[in-house]
């Protein structure tokens, strides 16, 4: 098991480095640069001097290595769009609302979704199943901006129960969190249902019944444990959402989170900020995949007992 974790960690690091290179190259392959705006063109000599100052005249690999070296020391540079701050400070500051939004969305959405999916699987082809499946399908197919608009319309405009936008006091958090929770709720409901059904159809469940175990014990000890194995692979990667929030939800409810910076950093070729955000997301993805692999192995004796081979 230790060997398995070490191998996984190493391969994760390699993946992360490759991804960072790809992101860096893609970022720089978009035509234009930070000082190519049309409104106030800079004189060439000033532009060149600025470029040299920021190191943008160097070959790409030098820029990449410099940036990554800094990143290793938690120095992600200075955002071009607000030179008074550091990228680190800006991200840390803007991350809080995204974290609250994404975290609460998942904390609310995931358990409800899982329970809904379980209920649907245990009562397959009954009205519970149909309602749950309809909800899940709606949650996945209706775009977030439509859900958001509906929520604003009903709870803010018609009922006047809650404010339509902003972030300040916790009262303002409710609608965006609800809008955000719809997606994890629907996703988990669907996965929980199919994972449970998959397990319920396995021959060993019939064997457990034939042994005389109670239905409760069969579901809670055997079916849940087996269904959890495929589910962890979907579970953890969704937590990355905690970091990023949802660009759309943040825009709809004017939440001062990270979402806005994704768009602006790309538009403005704000390379340090863009790279920092991308590295953050890739890192979170890598870690969540690593954790889900480990959890998967812990739950699955095939991997836990004889290593990853076989």
């Amino acid at each position: 098991m230790t060997g398995f974790i070490i191998r996984r960690t190493l391969s994760m690091l390699v993946t992360f480095i490759v991804v960072s290179i790809v992101i860096f190259l893609m970022m720089h392959s978009i035509p234009g640069g930070p000082f190519d705006g049309n409104e106030m063109p800079l004189p060439d000599n000033i532009r060149d001097r600025l470029m040299a100052q920021l190191g943008l005249d160097q070959p790409l690999y030098v820029q990449y290595l410099r940036y990554m070296w800094g990143a290793l020391h938690f120095d992600f540079g200075v955002p071009y769009q607000s030179p008074g701050e550091t990228v680190m400070g800006l991200v840390a500051h803007a991350w809080v609302p995204s974290l609250v939004l994404g975290g609460s969305g998942i904390i609310i959405g995931a358990p409800i979704g899982i329970l809904l999916g379980m209920a649907a699987a245990l009562n397959r082809n009954s009205w519970i199943d149909y309602v749950a499946s309809a909800l899940a399908t709606l949650g996945l197919t209706i775009p977030v901006f439509v859900t958001s608009t509906l929520l604003i319309l009903v709870f803010a405009v018609w009922l006047h129960w809650l404010p339509a936008s902003g972030w300040g006091e916790p009262k303002r958090w409710i609608l965006p969190i609800l809008a955000y929770a719809a997606v994890p709720l629907a996703t988990y409901a669907r996965y929980a249902r199919s994972a449970m059904l998959d397990t319920l159809n396995k021959p060993f469940v019939t064997v457990l019944r034939a042994k005389g175990l109670s239905e409760r014990r069969i579901i809670f000890q055997h079916v849940l444990r087996n269904s959890a194995i495929p589910m962890v692979t979907v579970f953890l990667p969704m937590f990355v959402g905690i970091a990023t929030g949802s660009i759309f939800v943040e825009a709809m409810f004017r939440v001062p989170g990270l979402g806005a910076y994704f768009v602006s950093s790309i538009e403005k070729r704000d390379y340090p900020l863009e790279m920092a955000l991308m590295l953050l997301i890739s890192m979170l993805f890598c870690i969540s995949y690593l954790l889900s692999d480990i959890l998967y192995a812990l739950l699955n004796p095939r991997i836990r007992v004889d290593g990853s081979r076989r």
């Binding site: 019944r209 034939a210 042994k211 005389g212 175990l213 055997h222 087996n226 739950l299 699955n300 095939r302």
Partner: peptide, 27 residues
């Protein structure tokens, strides 16, 4: 359901076709 499960395994027990899929893989 409860009454039938007290008979299963005790009064009548069963062995199935494919032993590879008849046992729960995680226990």
């Amino acid at each position: 359901n409860r009454a039938i499960s007290t008979l299963r395994g005790r009064v009548a027990a069963m062995v199935f076709q494919d032993p590879m899929t008849s046992l729960d893989p995680v226990f």
